[in-house]
């Protein structure tokens, strides 16, 4: 089966990273921020996998050690998302809004 070379997957992950960061930087809605965080996590996992494939290229398998780490990472990503969402719910209960710009108590 023809696969794209690993470098393209790396490029994909960088694009995803950019999208994720853009989301984090510019969105004011807290939930959208969490989504952005998730996208960044996906990007990192993808990058890790493609880097792992670059090691064994041109063989068609990825280093199992890398896969192990990525699986764990996905799980952790899920947990992080869950925690982040619970924090968002808590913040919403406290501040009655999902707008990040309202949470300014940590300024100077």
């Amino acid at each position: 089966m023809e696969y794209l070379p690993p470098q393209s997957y790396l490029a994909l992950s960088l694009i995803l990273l950019a999208i994720g960061f853009y989301c984090l930087v510019s969105k004011r809605n807290m939930i959208k921020t969490v989504i952005g965080l998730e996208i960044v996590t996906i990007a990192v996992n993808t990058a890790f996998m493609s880097l792992g494939w670059m090691r064994t290229y041109p063989a068609n398998f990825i280093d199992p050690l890398a896969q192990t780490f990525v699986i764990i990472s996905i799980a952790i990503g899920g947990i992080v998302a869950a925690l982040a969402l619970s924090l968002v719910v808590d913040a919403h209960q406290h501040y009655k809004t999902l707008d990040l710009k309202k949470l300014r108590r940590l300024r100077w």
């Binding site: 004011r28 990040l100 949470l103 108590r105």
Partner: peptide
């Protein structure tokens, strides 16, 4: 220290 999370993330970036 604006308190905006978004600006902090720009810093991280």
């Amino acid at each position: 220290q604006t308190g905006f999370l978004n600006y902090n993330i720009i810093g991280i970036l």
